[in-house]
Nucleic acid binder design. Structure first.
Length: 291
DNA sequence: TAAGCGTGGCC
DNA sequence: TGGCCAAGCTT
């Protein structure tokens, strides 16, 4: 499969069109790649870039981060969103330091066992950091395959076994080529085969795209999102945590109560943050990021 | 399995 | 303007 026109065209396109992202450079450590993958979960590259630079400057190895309280990771996470990722990345650093001699594992199953690392991230780290052959199936790749192979504009909401089988069937046989292929298809999805306005004129495989060849039929499946935010517990959680991040000292309850009027919802959100380990209720009644 | 989980930019 | 979208994971 390594020399079929499909993969050859995508790989050639990547050679000249790939973005120069710091975690893709030859000198990037496995740890720095792992950090980038966690940060990039549901968060755009442009917002990850400065956060990743600052993070790697402060904690260049897992051991550096493992020495810190988890609350420092949450504070450093700033406004990247989904702050549980910061907690899990800290837990990753501890596990790697204590159980893997400070080295990011290269085994897919071991990576999968680490907190916050699921199927995609385990494959991505094994492939991008260690040059192994794994199917990479993120939102970009799912969209590219849905269009070029299946002929539909958008993939199903939840990943199917058919998608996994397709991604594995397309994987080039040689590990180094497969690793290049994975990041190349992702990049194609991110830059050309985008969700809203795909730039088919710039696509190296437009001539083989089932969706384009079918005349780009409109999506006719079920509604695909519904991710409202305003007024949700998530918004309240965000406001509460922002107060704690901004304060070098523990804060009094009044400071938290000021961020949201609905007391029932506010208490529910605060309890959930405590339950998640993102907030530490102190004995004196104040609240802090976890120690 | 589907819902919950932040944040910000874009059209 | 506001819904949609962004390198998912966990329960």
């Amino acid at each position: 499969m390594s020399d079929n026109p499909y993969s050859t065209a995508v790989l050639a396109w990547y050679e000249t069109n790939a973005r120069d992202l710091p975690w893709r450079r030859p000198e990037a450590s496995a740890w720095s790649i792992l950090v980038s993958e966690i940060m990039l979960q549901q968060t755009p590259v442009v917002r990850v870039l400065p956060a990743w630079e600052a993070w790697m400057e402060r904690w260049p190895t897992p051991a550096h981060l493992a020495k810190e309280p988890s609350g420092e990771a949450v504070r450093m996470w700033n406004r990247l969103g989904y702050p549980r990722r910061a907690l899990r990345l800290h837990a990753c650093a501890v596990a790697i330091t204590e159980e893997h001699d400070g080295e990011v594992p290269d085994d897919h199953a071991t990576l999968l066992s680490l907190p916050g690392i699921g199927a995609y991230t385990a494959a991505a780290v094994a492939s991008f950091a260690h040059g192994q052959r794994h199917a990479i199936l993120d939102t970009n790749v799912r969209r590219v395959l849905a269009r070029t192979e299946t002929g539909i504009e958008y993939p199903p909401k939840t990943q199917t076994k058919a998608e996994t089988a397709l991604a594995e069937a397309l994987l080039p046989p040689t590990a180094s080529v497969a690793a290049r292929w994975g990041v190349a298809v992702m990049e194609l999805g991110a830059l050309v085969c985008t969700a809203r306005s795909p730039r088919c004129a710039d696509c190296p495989i437009a001539g083989q795209c089932a969706w384009k060849l079918a005349g780009k039929p409109a999506y006719d499946g079920p509604p695909r999102r519904g991710q409202t935010y305003a007024g949700t517990d998530r918004q309240v959680r965000g406001k509460l945590l922002a107060v704690l991040r901004a304060s070098p000292e523990p804060v009094v309850k009044d400071a938290l109560d000021a961020v949201w009027d609905d007391g029932v919802q506010r208490e529910r959100a605060l309890d959930a943050l405590v339950s998640d380990g993102l907030v530490d209720p102190l004995d004196d009644g104040r609240y802090a990021l976890p120690g």
